[in-house]
Design a binder for these strands. Structure first.
Lengths: 185, 185
DNA sequence: CCGTTATTTCTGTAAAAAATGAAATAAATA
DNA sequence: TATTTATTTCATTTTTTACAGAAATAACGG
């Protein structure tokens, strides 16, 4: 009694899933994960693992692991369906929210560890007596850059979405409003 | 007569190269490429392929290909050394410039193709007669998001570095200056 | 508890990516 | 033009990652 979800009937949906899966590879996300995300992003109803497996033709176990990863990124969430003990999942469909979750995930997984590693290097460099000052400066510059952008990011995270959108939509106009000169003004 | 570059003597440098290489993997950049970049980033003198190969213990051919990739990203450039017919390379050492080059590269390789694919899907969806309006809306939302952020990015690229730094350093203070309310204000 | 159904973990295999060493090409000089 | 030296290309091996299918575990309903 596995209800079929007519979503995969649409050509456009199928194409989107294919493209998205492939894009994922370029991005460092594996195809299964990206495809499942694409499917759930477009599905109007939550889906269970069995349905996803059938819709995409990928192994049930693979679906299970991929779902776990997507949950880890907070791009999908479990939704309980009354009277059904299977687990259903739905995707975050607000694209801004989605982007922020991805940014957050990448920061945690990629940026933060890099920053930590860098700190360790700087510490080591500072204890080395005959360290070349040029080298030390470059490490410090990099560290400073990371600290600055990290702090910027933290602040942006705290900005409510509507204001953030306004800001983005203003683009480089903020410069003139702030009386910061920009090229060709 | 391959002059040794004493740079790899420093423990801190070696550690940085190792960390950076490993970070690269997480990032979707292969280890060789990341290590070479790290090495050149810290080296005060330009280096040739032979020296790099020796310093990192990786195959000469691998160095050649990796250098080509780094040049493609504009993270390093060839520098002619008078009286030496070998090719020498040096890295961009301004971290802001470096970040912008990486951003530009990722946009071209990851974002732009995604946007194109998305456009194709939207077009297909719009021609399908019985397309679910919810699905179409989600595709359009995504497309709109991409267009917005893309335009923002283009504008930011045109902002001269010093102003950009100012802007980043201001962080969420721009909101108050622009009279856009923010949480806790 | 026992049988049933859902989910996860584990193990092997297939596919993809990275890296090497050798061969080929190109560039320079003598 | 022949010879040396630098660089690139190519075929092969190694390493890593993705995936499937089976087995194990867990969750529930009778």
């Amino acid at each position: 009694m596995t209800e079929t979800n007519e979503i995969t009937q649409h050509d456009a949906v199928e194409q989107f899933i294919l493209y998205w899966g492939d894009m994922g590879s370029q991005w460092g996300v594996n195809r299964s994960v990206a495809q499942i995300h694409a499917l759930l992003f477009l599905s109007r109803e939550p889906m269970n693992a069995e349905q996803i497996s059938a819709a995409l033709g990928i192994a049930r176990s693979n679906v299970s692991n991929s779902l776990k990863e997507l949950v880890g990124w907070k791009l999908i969430r479990r939704v309980p369906i009354p009277g059904d003990r299977r687990e259903y999942f739905e995707a975050e469909t607000d694209v801004w929210e989605m982007a922020m979750r991805i940014a957050q995930g990448r920061k945690e997984r990629e940026i933060d560890p890099a920053a930590a590693a860098l700190t360790a290097c700087v510490e080591k460099a500072e204890t080395e007596k005959n360290i070349d000052p040029v080298i030390l400066k470059r490490l410090l510059d990099m560290q400073d850059f990371m600290a600055t952008t990290n702090s910027w990011y933290e602040q942006m995270l705290r900005v409510p979405k509507p204001q953030l959108k306004t800001l983005i939509k203003m683009g480089d106009k903020v410069l003139s409003v702030l009386k910061i000169a920009r090229k060709g003004t």
